[in-house]
């Protein structure tokens, strides 16, 4: 646990604080030593742990798949190749079932989302104190106060990470809509649904209403995508932290929750991928 026997509140708060590096109005570019400092940094700050784990796990995923892809034989595949092909075929089938347009991007995008999000979620199964304590020890070696070294291992419990991905997807949705239907088509999507009327005057009345409704619908897509993943993982992480506070009894509970959580992390990765495909399919298809 962090520091000298913190209260449960402190313990939880400590666990939920990212390691932040950014521009502080008083200290300049530095590591944040408290949650307050981190929030004072405002937008110009980076969650080192989130980005570090994200990039590290992303590279792990790409390295693994690239290695298999380069060595892929058309003969009898070995163990790892089997696994990779299973994933690729699974994603490919999911894409083909849902997305009927032609795009070279969608399938690799989905594969990346699924594997990456899954790996990020998987960090949730690492015991909650293990990596933060390691980080504290390393931080102490560099002369930092262990109580002020923050380390949040699961990137998907950081809303920045999930929102970063979902906004990229959002950009793709808009790009695909415009590419498939033209800019006027995109505007039409926003203003001519769901109410329309053959009467020009009534239609003109409907346009602003439609615009408000459709804009909300459009914006709800990336936000719901990000918050769904974030919320599930954040809650799961929180329960792990709570379980970690109850002494020896935590072991069976941890096991039970981890088993259940294994389902959640896979499911959430799948949902994120599937919704991305569905949104992009909707963007391309005519109504």
């Amino acid at each position: 646990m962090a520091g000298n026997n913190p209260t449960p509140t402190e313990y939880i708060q400590h666990h939920l604080q990212n390691m932040t590096f950014g521009y502080h109005p008083e200290h300049g570019w530095s590591m944040a030593h408290s949650a307050q400092e981190a929030s004072e940094m405002g937008f110009w700050a980076i969650h080192v742990d989130t980005l570090g784990w994200s990039i590290g796990l992303g590279i792990l995923f790409l390295w693994l798949f690239r290695k298999v892809g380069k060595a892929a034989t058309t003969g009898i595949p070995g163990g790892l190749q089997n696994f990779v092909e299973l994933m690729v075929e699974f994603v490919d089938n999911s894409v083909k079932e849902t997305f009927h347009g032609k795009s070279k991007l969608i399938a690799p995008l989905s594969l990346t989302i699924f594997c990456w999000v899954f790996l990020l979620n998987l960090m949730d199964l690492v015991p909650v104190d293990f990596l933060p304590m390691l980080a504290q020890k390393i931080g102490a070696m560099f002369g930092a106060d262990p109580a002020h070294v923050y380390f949040k291992v699961v990137p998907t419990t950081d809303v920045n990470a999930t929102l970063g991905m979902s906004l990229s997807v959002f950009a793709l949705i808009i790009f695909y809509t415009i590419r498939a239907k033209g800019f006027s088509g995109f505007i039409g999507e926003l203003t001519l649904h769901p109410f329309n009327s053959p009467n020009k005057l009534v239609q003109a009345l409907f346009v602003p209403i439609n615009f408000v409704l459709e804009t909300v619908t459009l914006l709800a897509k990336p936000i719901s995508l990000a918050l769904r993943l974030f919320g599930n993982l954040y809650a799961g992480e929180l329960i792990f932290i709570l379980i970690a506070m109850i002494g020896l009894l935590q072991l069976p509970l941890h096991f039970a929750w981890a088993t259940f959580h294994l389902l959640v992390i896979t499911l959430q990765a799948f949902i994120f991928m599937m919704l991305t495909i569905v949104y992009l399919a909707m963007a391309v298809e005519k109504h």
Binding site: F43, G69, G164, M165
Partner: peptide
């Protein structure tokens, strides 16, 4: 807090997708 991490994550995401599309998916 929403901060630069968001943009960093988006860039990393874009790079990974590009890399996957270019070097992982085809073989």
């Amino acid at each position: 807090n929403l901060n630069l991490t968001l943009i960093g994550q988006a860039i990393a995401f874009a790079f990974f997708v590009w890399f996957c599309m270019r070097f992982v998916w085809p073989p």
